[in-house]
Write a protein that binds this DNA or RNA. Structure first.
Length: 246
DNA sequence: GCGACAG
DNA sequence: ATCTTGTCGC
């Protein structure tokens, strides 16, 4: 992929933090996109006791939410899990999976935080910036910040705040369940992020995009992996020029 | 120094 | 995230 913000991945935690602070300056939390016809769910799982990273991308039509395409990529795990540095562990594999797509998704729903991060640069921001695809962070638990109690009805939400600023929202996507933490990744405002997450959510707590991607990243048997590999190789994969055209 | 800590 | 069975509640 010909990325506008390419960079080395062989970094120490200290270098990774410095890079986040640098790249964060380029993040845009305003709506900057045209029509959204496809939404992709991105998720990552691990095999071999964590030695292998498996990334999955599921592209759904929008607003119909019908599966259009799915890809999987596996590669050796090279970075440990460190709170605040998740993207350095998962993004390389995700980029591999995105390169296999034939359809360029209009929006990315990522597993994890966007701006709801100590340095305002969660995995959704990192992926959005590298691919230049509008992105949203959809996390199942909190990394940083606080919020008031949320009404127990779908759609209810409260701003997530940290050090005096609103960094995201705690959103109830289903009654009687824990909220989801939504935040802008890149080129999407918080209000719009909440709207899209709700429009991708049907009867479950997690959006359909995330559910499809998670199924691929964690529940797909190795036996069915080769079947997917063939489908992925059938047509011409997304060319780098198609990604990043501002 | 102590506790918290996406996946 | 992953290792793992049954089980409590709407």
């Amino acid at each position: 992929m010909d990325l506008h913000h390419q960079h080395d991945w062989n970094l120490t935690p200290e270098e990774a933090i410095a890079l986040q602070q640098s790249l964060q300056q380029a993040v845009i939390t305003l709506d900057q996109f045209q029509s959204i016809d496809t939404v992709a769910g991105v998720d990552v799982g691990f095999e071999d006791a964590g030695h292998t990273t498996r990334a999955a991308v599921a592209v759904l039509s929008f607003p119909g939410l019908q599966l259009q395409e799915q890809t999987i990529a596996r590669r050796p795990t090279t970075f440990p899990y460190i709170p605040g540095l998740l993207s350095f562990r998962e993004v390389p594999a995700v980029l591999d999976a995105l390169e296999k797509l034939h359809i360029l998704p209009d929006l990315l729903l990522c597993d994890g935080q966007g701006t709801a991060h100590p340095r305002r640069f969660g995995i959704a921001c990192h992926l959005g910036l590298l691919t230049n695809i509008p992105s949203i962070g959809v996390a199942k638990s909190l990394l940083v910040g606080n919020h008031a109690d949320i009404l127990d009805e779908k759609g209810a939400w409260q701003p997530l705040q940290h050090k005096g600023e609103t960094i995201g929202a705690a959103l109830r996507t289903r009654p009687k369940t824990k909220p989801l933490y939504i935040s802008p990744g890149h080129r999407v405002s918080l209000e719009t992020a909440i709207d899209y997450v709700l429009r991708c959510t049907t009867k479950y707590r997690l959006p359909e995009t995330t559910r499809f991607a998670h199924k691929l990243a964690s529940e797909t048997p190795a036996s069915e992996l080769e079947k997917l590999e063939k489908k992925q190789a059938m047509a011409t994969p997304l060319e780098s020029e198609q990604l990043n055209l501002f």
